[in-house]
Design a binder for these strands. Structure first.
Length: 579
RNA sequence: CGGGGCGUAGCUCAGCUUGGCUAGAGCGCUGCGUUCGGGACGCAGAGGUCGCAAGUUCAAAUCUUGUCGCCCCGACCA
């Protein structure tokens, strides 16, 4: 393609509303433009990269035995009501009424639809296993879109769903996808980390997340220094902290007047103490039951761990009335004392149990108590009492004795074992060999196509622009003619361009009649991995320059050997990636 | 949703505090000329309902209210 025929609107200035490098560069390199908050138009260069990513995904999915289909992006609400996810998804799911008054949703994902399809078409174990996937737009009305394409409202997702007859078969499908994902991200040139993940809202029993470590990532991943354990923050287990040396003769608990000081920070400031000396008491409702979680003041509750501790049933922060009833005080003054008798579960984090003495709410409005000793002033064991891990890991924590390291990462894919959550509700059943009716086991496997693009830029860029991996670059080669007005230069550049095309290389020819400096700046910005520079100086000597975007210096080649040399370089760059 | 900020030319922004003359700059864009290997220069131009609506006023980009949009921070979002 010739640059002069393409819409590649590069910009010098950094757009005001772009914070992270990938967002800035995607605008500056002319890959995309914003239409509204969280929705983007992909321009020729951006779309070419997305097509290349989708091509890789497609090849690997097909090679792994999955079959491509396409499902509607408008789905009937009834399907979502059948699985209860109309409530679970809440405002994130965009809903609208059609002209007949039927409720519809804009697909945020497709478990319901694909299970509906399977329920209708799969009747026998002979049809299993089957793995169906699509590459399509998804819409999630995020409360806060940000970082360009990293958290957008509309995005392209590859979503695959396996249907299996038994756990062993599901395990095989899961493993096939896991392996396919490794190949996909490798071929896209990403450095990724696989972490254990919670299956969360999706339901199900096992999950891994594929994450690209980088500062702009919104996910927090945690791993041991030796790399033998990696998980996301929702999942990462932490060892109990060592018991603090007990303080001799702690005086009895003593009430302190703390008027209107309902937050940890406020109380700390007032009492000149630190959050890690505080005992935080959170009250949850789980249907009719009330659950109390006790944490150290500087720690955060991990909702997934709480749910696990409660046998998989999620609990919600209690409303004000419940908090008043249970604690006998306004919100912000609850304490663990006497709670065991009032609630169905008293869950105490290890870190609290390890404290020698602390400060807690007094269960009395505007009062806290000091000299609270865990085990003395509230129980650490008993029928309803458990000491366990219910918090997020923090810097300094250990997992099975090994120190944990924290990193930000971009989630580019996740695989889940779903089990029968959807198939049972939507009637995806089959007859097994003995003629007995069975419910399909399912797995689901997602990849964020646009996130692959953004994270590739995020980890490979410099002050001048993008440095694409060759596999997903909009073009493999760029021919830059420095003096397009010079007839011989123009003719030489054109001939090289034609020959590269003829040999099936993916080439962009910058044929614009612009000054060299401008063309070089643009070339660096859009980041095509290989550049051939054709200029007057070289051409008179029968030479051109060949330069890799990622390298500082270039090499010289004769005009005759240039094409062959580029072909060789392309081969090398692919070999590096595909290893 | 709670808190904060911003809407002035295609882009980045100034002007607003203290209302007043033809609403500005840089970049980009068009034409001509000179330049021509790392974002050149000169001359001449095009381009603005100052987000929208109402109000105050002799007079509003500027003050007030409302509204819409966008961005940032926060809250168990894949």
């Amino acid at each position: 393609m010739k640059w002069s025929n393409l819409l590649i609107p590069t910009v010098k200035e950094v757009p005001a509303d772009a914070e992270v490098p990938s967002h800035q560069l995607m605008i500056r390199a002319g890959l995309m433009r914003k239409l509204s908050s969280g929705t983007y138009t992909y321009l020729p260069l951006g779309w070419r990269t997305l097509l290349k990513i989708m091509g890789i995904v497609r090849e690997e999915m097909n090679a792994a035995g999955a079959q491509e289909i396409l499902m509607p992006s408008v789905q009937p609400m009834e399907l979502w009501q059948q699985t209860g996810r109309d409530v679970a998804y809440g405002e994130t799911m965009c809903r609208f009424k059609d002209r007949h008054g039927r409720m519809n949703v804009l697909a945020p994902t497709a478990e319901e639809v694909v299970t509906y399809v399977a329920a209708g078409e799969i009747n026998s174990y002979k049809q299993l296993p089957v793995n169906l996937y699509q590459i399509s737009f998804k819409f999630r009305d995020e409360f806060r879109p940000r970082f360009g394409v990293l958290r957008s409202r509309e995005f392209i997702m590859k979503d695959a769903y396996s249907f299996n007859a038994d756990p062993a078969s599901l395990e095989v499908s899961y493993r096939q996808m896991y392996d396919a994902y490794c190949r996909i991200f490798k071929r896209c040139g990403l450095d990724y980390v696989i972490v254990e993940a919670e299956s969360g809202e999706m339901g199900g029993s096992g999950s891994h997340q594929f994450t690209v470590p980088c500062d702009s990532g919104e996910d927090i991943i945690v791993h041991t220094e030796d790399g033998t354990y990696a998980a996301n923050i929702e999942k990462a287990g932490v060892d109990p902290l060592p018991k603090q040396p007990s303080v001799a003769h702690v005086p009895p608990m003593e009430e302190i007047h703390t008027p209107h000081l309902g937050s940890i920070e406020a109380v700390c400031e007032f009492l000149q103490s630190r959050p890690e000396q505080m005992i935080k008491t959170l009250i949850f409702s789980q249907g009719e039951n009330v659950v109390v979680a006790v944490l150290r003041g500087d720690h955060e509750l991990n909702p997934e761990k709480l749910t696990q501790a409660l046998g998989g049933k999620a609990a919600e922060l209690a409303d004000e009335a419940t908090i008043r009833r249970i604690s006998g005080a306004a919100v912000g003054f609850a304490g663990p004392m006497g709670m065991a008798e009032k609630v169905s579960h008293l869950l105490i984090d290890h870190a609290v149990a390890a404290m020698a003495v602390g400060i807690a709410g007094a269960n009395k409005t505007d009062y806290h108590v000091k000299n609270v000793v865990p085990g003395r002033d509230f129980p650490l064991e008993g029928q309803k009492v458990r000491v366990l891990d219910i918090r997020n890991a923090v810097e300094g924590d250990r997992h099975q004795g090994k120190k944990l390291v924290f990193k930000h990462g971009i989630e580019v894919g996740q695989v889940f074992k779903l089990g029968t959550k959807y198939s049972s509700k939507l009637g995806a059943k089959f007859l097994d060999e003995s003629g007995a009716e069975q419910v399909c086991l399912m797995g689901c496997y997602g990849i964020g196509i646009n996130r692959i693009m953004a994270s590739a830029i995020e980890i490979r860029n410099d002050n001048d622009g993008i440095i694409w991996p060759i596999s997903i670059a909009p073009f493999e080669v760029l021919v830059t003619s420095v003096n397009q007005d010079d007839e011989e230069v123009a003719r030489t550049a054109e001939a090289i361009y034609q020959e590269l095309c003829r040999q099936n290389m993916d080439v962009l020819f910058d044929d614009r009649r612009l000054r060299g400096g401008v063309k070089f700046k643009d070339a660096d910005l859009i980041g095509i991995p290989i550049r051939i520079t054709v200029g007057k100086r070289g051409v008179t000597e029968g030479k051109v320059e060949i330069k890799l975007r990622r390298h500082e210096n270039s090499e010289t080649a004769t005009i005759d050997e240039a094409v062959a040399r580029v072909k060789e370089l392309i081969g090398q760059l692919y070999a590096e990636i595909n290893g």
